[in-house]
């Protein structure tokens, strides 16, 4: 927290468009405000809404970089607005909604709906052999390192940055994206999920799944959680090719 007193004038150029309003067309609106120490885009946008334009739409929930609500295009690249500190940016900041997802208005997109659809399609839950559990009994042991490895992949916050950064997802709307492929990698690793590679092939063994990935790796480079998307997708590709060529 540098105690410097030179407050810059920030110019935030936000994309404005309300698809629900008849006749509305996308345009850029510029807001000027004075930078404060430690200012994040969450603070800046909240201030704009409070003091300048109460109609500006955007989404924040946790404002702490863990919920994945505030993904937006910040100077052309997807990122979490809440943990983007303005002092790291130029005084001119351009903000746009994440592409691919349904636009609600201005900077707000319906990534939740997309994610739910992805989860339903890829069945992103543990498929156990039996459902009846005896909860009184001691839990099944699990290798500590394996538990950590599963957690590593479970860290995805479904913010949609990977999808918005993906050339394939931009061109083909049914592509499951890095988020979907990472989920499959996560459940594949989880010993509690009894699905086999044959089952996973049914879910991602096509050009909407792992074979649609062109390895542009923008997902890996923009992931706010630094998930190992490159290696996980490569790994999944190898397994699915083995399944597809031998199965």
């Amino acid at each position: 927290m540098a105690d410097n007193d030179s407050h810059r004038k920030l110019r935030i150029h936000a994309l404005r468009y309300n698809p629900a309003k008849a006749g509305d067309t996308p345009r850029i609106q510029t807001y000027e405000l004075e930078e404060a120490p430690g200012m994040t885009l969450f603070i800046a946008l909240s201030e704009i809404r409070e003091k300048q334009d109460p109609s500006l739409q955007f989404d924040f929930v946790c404002r702490a970089g863990i919920c994945g609500s505030c993904g937006m295009m910040i100077n052309g690249r997807p990122g979490l607005a809440c943990r983007t500190v303005t002092k790291d940016l130029e005084a001119d900041i351009s903000l746009a909604p994440l592409p691919v997802f349904e636009l609600i208005g201005d900077l707000s997109v319906n990534s939740g709906k997309w994610m739910r659809g992805m989860s339903e399609k890829l069945e992103t839950w543990v498929h156990a052999q039996e459902r009846a559990l005896d909860l009184k009994r001691i839990e099944e042991p699990m290798d500590p390192a394996l538990a950590e490895a599963v957690y590593e992949l479970d860290r995805c916050i479904e913010c949609g940055c990977c999808v918005a950064s993906c050339g394939t997802a931009r061109m083909r709307e049914d592509f499951v994206g890095a988020v979907g492929l990472n989920k499959i990698a996560r459940f594949r690793l989880d010993p509690r999920d009894k699905r086999t590679d044959a089952d996973f092939y049914e879910l991602v063994g096509d050009d909407n799944g792992v074979f649609g990935c062109m390895s542009l790796l923008a997902c890996h480079d923009v992931c706010p959680k630094n998930l190992p998307l490159q290696t996980q997708i490569a790994f999944l590709r190898r397994k699915m090719v083995v399944q597809g060529t031998q199965g």
Binding site: W125, L133, L135, I138, E140, P144, A147, E148, D193
Partner: peptide
Amino acid sequence: VRELAAWGVPWSR
């Protein structure tokens, strides 16, 4: 906790 373990929470071990 045990139900969640069976459902897939990667509890630290």
